[in-house]
């Protein structure tokens, strides 16, 4: 049995199909990366898998007793609520001091126990969220664009941490990435989403070839990999219309066939200016 599985999952936002007929399953210890252009329903998919979205069709099934460690894309905590990092990590389950400092150290933000949540930088808060997710001893970690705002070495370090955590705890990892081509090398599977699943497969590990090193910079330690999209269909007719039942999209994959997906060329991964984390 999959940890989480979905069959024929469809989600509407304001009457428009955001997701249509998604079949998905993730197994124990598996790392799955979801990529896709803006508005392709990546966040909606992980939210639906957790149970945060109303689905119009289809089913989401959790393994009985499944423990989810969720790191949302954004989290606003009202300033009227005084909350230290240590207290935040004790929600909803009380954990001991030693466990708290171990979790913070594991995610690279040791010693922040007494700091107010509101005084954390974006990068620190992201790691505190991950520490909190770890404390629930999750069967699966679900992270929605956790590398947003990190520079490339930061992204590589974060991916290495996730791969280590998978190895140590055996938890599955479901990751949403805004980068269409450069993904976590440890991903067992990459799913390209655009309202439906366009294609999926294993990423290609970036070799030591000089042109790749020039593209990905030094010191990323093999944490990054390329994902080669294999699309057999064209998306122009889909734009703004949502799912179109007249054009079924489950054609057999044809790796030789050139496709006109708007994002089929690798681009330098840091197209946003890095800012301090």
């Amino acid at each position: 049995m999959h940890l989480i599985s979905a069959t024929g999952l469809s989600v509407h936002h304001g009457g428009v199909d955001v997701l249509a007929d998604i079949d998905f399953g993730i197994d124990r210890g598996e790392i799955v990366t979801i990529v896709g252009p803006n508005g392709s329903g990546k966040s909606t998919l992980v939210r639906a898998l957790i149970g945060l979205e109303r689905t119009v069709r289809g089913d989401v099934t959790h393994q009985p007793g499944l423990r989810i460690g969720y790191v949302p894309q954004r989290l606003h905590i009202d300033a009227t609520l005084p909350l230290t990092v240590a207290r935040f990590l004790c929600l909803p389950r009380w954990v001991g001091r030693a466990e708290i400092s171990a979790a913070l150290a594991r995610t690279g933000v040791e010693g922040l126990e007494r700091r107010a949540i509101s005084a954390l930088s974006g990068g620190q808060f992201q790691r505190v969220l991950l520490a909190r997710a770890l404390l629930s001893r999750p069967d699966i970690l679900i992270l929605d664009e956790p590398t947003q705002g990190l520079d490339q070495p930061g992204i590589a370090a974060f991916y290495r941490l996730l791969a280590d955590l998978r190895r140590e705890t055996g938890c599955a990892v479901l990751l949403v990435s805004h980068d269409l081509h450069v993904v976590m090398a440890a991903s067992d599977r990459v799913i390209c989403l655009n309202g439906h699943i366009c294609c999926q497969g294993a990423p290609r590990v970036v070799s030591a070839a000089p042109e790749y090193r020039a593209l990905f910079g030094l010191g990323t330690g093999g944490a990054l990999a390329l994902y080669q999209h294999v699309h057999d269909h064209d998306h122009e007719h889909d734009v703004g219309h949502g799912h179109d039942p007249e054009h079924p999209h489950s054609h057999p994959h044809d790796p030789e066939h050139p496709h006109s997906h708007p994002h089929d060329h690798p681009h330098p991964p840091s197209d946003e200016p890095p800012h301090a984390g």
């Binding site: 939210r47 957790i50 149970g51 945060l52 423990r67 989810i68 460690g69 969720y70 949302p72 989290l75 905590i77 009202d78 609520l81 909350l83 935040f88 004790c90 929600l91 909803p92 389950r93 009380w94 909190r132 629930s136 679900i142």
Partner: peptide
């Protein structure tokens, strides 16, 4: 208390934790 506080911090974290 704990469940209320978790839901106050974030409905989403509460749901993900099975609350």
């Amino acid at each position: 208390w704990q469940a209320l506080l978790t839901a106050t911090v974030s409905d989403e974290l509460a749901v993900a934790a099975g609350l």
